[in-house]
Nucleic acid binder design. Sequence first.
DNA 1: TCAACCCCTTACTTTTAAGTTAGTGCATTA
DNA 2: TAATGCACTAACTTAAAAGTAAGGGGTTGA
Lengths: 113, 113
Amino acid sequence: MNLMINTSECPIETVIHVLGGKWKPRICRHLIESTKRFSDLEKLIPAVSQKMLTQHLRDLEREGVIERTIHPVVPPKVEYALSDYGKTFIPVLEVMSIWGQNHIERKPEEPAS
Amino acid sequence: MNLMINTSECPIETVIHVLGGKWKPRICRHLIESTKRFSDLEKLIPAVSQKMLTQHLRDLEREGVIERTIHPVVPPKVEYALSDYGKTFIPVLEVMSIWGQNHIERKPEEPAS
DNA sequence: TCAACCCCTTACTTTTAAGTTAGTGCATTA
DNA sequence: TAATGCACTAACTTAAAAGTAAGGGGTTGA
């Protein structure tokens, strides 16, 4: 339904399932900073389409990682924030982030010849 | 070339890039246990095709996470093992695994009505 | 009256990942 | 002689994810 992984057994795949959409890591990073509304995220991630942003926000909400709050005003105001449960995800993201950072720096990879 | 992520900036995406193929988490988990040869992995992951297994092993090798050793015998013997660098990945996988485990257990999700 | 803002949804197309099937080469075993 | 094991590769098909374009609904501001 979402990525490509039948999640029913491997916990690592589960994490990838939760985080594995093209924009989800970025969305999470912004929401770790602070609550954001839809239009904020659009500005922060200019390359994402509305469809994809909506879809990935819904996915993260379904997983319980983020919360969506609708303020019934006009024009509509919808805020997205990490849930308490989502906050338990922060350390995981941090560990990944540190390794990823190091991996990027390590990369230059030997030039040909 | 591999998953779907232009990795050039977000370290979390980098980790997902390294690990984000359908069979990579499973491959890594088996190699954390011990060195395995191609046919071992085929047996351990019966659903994977040779093509996908080869491809994902190559990907992981390219990222420096695993090492491929060819023993020039007949029939061929090729062993795959975590590299020293790959071992730095283990703690990341563990943190992911713990959160993932918890997430799976949490899941049952409220029944309708 | 007309556009603008906000947060979407729907239908459709393109791109990317994964799967399927067949074949290779050499040596041992039956 | 033929079949088997090993570790692949190549060509092709299917499925899944992402992208594109358009519209909607209600209110405010020009």
